[in-house]
Structure formats: C-alpha cells, structure tokens
Design a protein around this nucleic acid. Structure first.
Lengths: 110, 110
DNA sequence: GTATGATGCTTTGGCATTCTAGGCAACAAA
DNA sequence: TTTGTTGCCTAGAATGCCAAAGCATCATAC
C-alpha cells in the first residue's frame, strides 16, 4: 500500500497532544476527537500514531496517566499535563513559531 | 549520538528546495546557502539531507540536473525546476498553508 | 610549501516518527 | 445479533532527516 502524503508533519504531534491536554485531562480516544474538533476536522490523528506518542510523552515526564471511569461508566486511561509538560508545550510552540516564520521568509522571496 | 531537535520539520525540505530553485537554477551547495540566506540564517539544511533529497526530487521529475562550470571556474551540478516541479511547489505550499491554519486553530483554543 | 577553510558531490547507516493494519473488549442501537 | 462507536495496544513498514565519513578542487594565510 503506497503511503500518501502524511496528514501531519513529523514533529507536530507532540505539540498537538500537549495542547489538547492543556485544556484539561483527557483519555487517548478523547484527545483524537479534541484535536479533530479544534482544528475544524482538518487534523486526523490515527490511533496507531497517538498511543505510541502518549507512551513516549509519558516516559519523558510531560504527562501522567491513570485509569479512571468517566461519566458514561466506561473505563479509560486519563492523561494529565505535568508542569514539565506545560513547559515543553511552550517550548514546542515557540519552536513552531520560529519555523513558520523562517519558512514564511523563504516563501516571500521573489 | 543523541539527536537534538531537528532543524526542520520532516516534510518541509522538498518545498524549500523547490522554492529555492523557483528563483533560478542553482547547484546543490548553493541551494543550501540560498535557503540559509532567505531565512535569515534560521534554516540550515545539511548536505546529508540535501543531496539525497535532490536525487529523490529529480527522480520524480520535479527538477532536471546538468553539470556545468560557473563563473568561478568550478564544476557543479546545476538543478532547474521543471513545469511539474513548479506545480508541485504550489501544491506543497497549499498543503503547508492548510497545516499551519489547522495548527493555528488548535493553538487558539482556550 | 603547506595547512586550513570554503566550496562542491556522494554514500552509508542510523534513528525518530508516523501510518497501516491488525487484534481485543465493552457497550449501544438497530 | 450485527453493526458502529468507544476505548487501548502492538508489530511492521515507510518516510525522511541527520551524522559522519570520504573525496576533490581552490584560495588564503602562515
């Protein structure tokens, strides 16, 4: 199966996840939906991308996780942004801004 | 050797190369410098990234190459954007814009 | 003269990240 | 009872960039 153009650019996923969690704790499946909704359906994070990313992010101490039951009575693993995660989010946003600025400069060249 | 934060986001390199070439034919080493200069020193493309990318891009028919001697008397391989390359550049720019827009939306969430 | 640094091309191997594709389970609605 | 949604996880492949090395030419400085 030929890979089509990736939805996301590599490196943006962590930022999106951290951002989603900065609005409040959430479980994996919900993170996908939140990102989808916030982006007006433009960003579709695959489960196969998300869960490994969450694992990675937790290993780095940017989030903590905990199994819990939510309103609907379903069990799910809730992730919560840590202080370090919030710092990381800020750093990634700054880095993103720099990149966008740099690319913009190049693209403005005539 | 631990990888530090990537300079580029994966997926942007082709667009930058095509954009650099859209300003006129150039050889590999010059492309690196042009991107560096246009971005106000913010983007540093490694040779180990560039040359394989140029090969890829040429295979796809977005550029053609030809050995030539330039002013200084040095031999170099000059790359030139094809019509298909120009279309590709437009497509990649549009795709980039969509992504930036989507990420912006997510980031604006409170 | 010779060492250094810039210019120039190429290749190898590694590595991080994402996607595809599958499996599993619980629950609701049809 | 079957289908769709919610929910988690993993293996394997594809992608794409980087580090590091090699090689060659040329200019400059010492």
């Amino acid at each position: 199966m030929k890979r089509e153009k990736a939805d996301l650019l590599q490196g943006t996923l962590d930022m999106l996840i951290l951002k989603a969690l900065s609005l409040g704790p959430l479980h994996g499946y919900g993170i996908i939906q939140r990102i989808r909704q916030l982006s007006d359906e433009m960003l579709h994070v695959e489960q196969g991308s998300l869960y490994p990313a969450l694992y990675r992010i937790e290993q780095k101490g940017w989030v903590t996780s905990e199994w819990d039951t939510h309103d609907t009575g379903r069990r799910a693993k809730f992730y919560k942004l840590t202080r370090a995660g919030r710092r990381q989010l800020e750093a990634e946003e700054a880095s993103w801004d720099r990149l966008v600025l740099a690319v913009t400069k190049v693209r403005q060249a005539t």
